[in-house]
Each structure stands twice: as structure tokens, then as C-alpha cells.
């Protein structure tokens, strides 16, 4: 679509959208947000870009093939489930790792990895659908 307003707005918006989707994603564990909603907003960014500049350009910006995103997403889902099994606990049990840096502490966990998987799957899936429909 050739529209100066859309082009300019999209260039400004895409960064904000991706950042916002990451913000929603990381907020997810204790407050509203998470992998699914974050993924939707992230997919929205690439969809907007595809509408403004065409799917080819959007694929280039995404760099990775959307189906590869789904595959990596699924893989991190499984891995996050399998990790507790190495310490003889049932599949999908949440495991936490607290790292104290002094200034800001980090919480790493298998639920986080699981959520990353959800995020990637949602982005990959939505983008695949939108691109296929756009290219029809």
C-alpha cells in the first residue's frame, strides 16, 4: 500500500510495538501479560510492516522464517518441561534460579523458558497466517 502517512507511522511504530510486546511478555509472570499477549502484539508489529511495505520486506525484517520460529518455540516448550526431569521431578515442574547481581537481581526459571516458547509460537503462527493470506 502506498501511503506516506502509513509508511512514516509504521517506521516509527514498529520499534515501539516490538518493545511493548517484550514489556508485556516480561511483565507476564506476576502481573497481566505473558507470552501469548506479548506474541500477539509482536506479530502485530510485523503484520503492520507487511501491510505498509509488502510481505517480502516484512520477511526480511523478521530475518527468521516464521515456521522456524514455531519450531524453536515448540522446542523450548518441551525443553522447559524436560528440565525438572533431570532432577527427578515430574514433567513441567517449575524450577527457579535466582542470581544476585547486587544492583538488580535476576530470576531465571523454566516457566520463563516456557513463556518464551509460547511467545515464539504465537508470533510464528500469526505471521505465517497473515503472510499466506497477503500473498494469495
Amino acid at each position: 500500500m502506498k501511503s506516506l502517512i502509513l509508511h512514516t507511522a509504521t517506521r516509527l511504530m514498529i520499534g515501539v510495538l516490538v518493545l511493548f510486546s517484550l514489556f508485556l511478555f516480561f511483565r507476564g509472570h506476576d502481573e497481566p501479560g505473558g507470552g501469548f499477549i506479548g506474541g500477539l502484539v509482536g506479530a502485530g508489529a510485523f503484520t503492520l510492516y507487511a501491510i505498509a511495505f509488502g510481505t517480502e520486506a516484512s520477511r526480511k525484517v523478521l530475518r527468521v522464517h516464521p515456521i522456524t520460529l514455531i519450531a524453536i518455540g515448540l522446542l523450548s516448550l518441551v525443553v522447559s518441561g524436560l528440565i525438572p526431569m533431570f532432577v527427578a521431578e515430574p514433567f513441567l515442574t517449575g524450577k527457579w534460579l535466582f542470581i544476585e547481581w547486587g544492583a538488580f537481581d535476576t530470576k531465571l526459571s523454566t516457566p520463563l523458558l516456557f513463556d518464551i516458547g509460547v511467545y515464539l509460537c504465537v508470533v510464528g503462527f500469526i505471521v505465517t497466517v497473515i503472510f499466506s493470506l497477503e500473498e494469495e
Binding site: I67, T68, I70, A71, I72, L74, L75, V78, G81, L82, M85, P90, F91
Partner: peptide, 17 residues
């Protein structure tokens, strides 16, 4: 007990990758 579900999922993921 989870393996009969997890193994096909891992295989499917690798095949997709």
C-alpha cells in the same frame, strides 16, 4: 510416563526445524 507424549513432540519439532 510423559515420554510417549514428549518423544513425538520432540520429533515433530526437529522435523519442523
Amino acid at each position: 510416563l510423559v515420554l510417549p507424549v514428549a518423544i513425538p513432540l520432540i520429533t515433530a519439532t526437529l522435523a519442523l526445524l
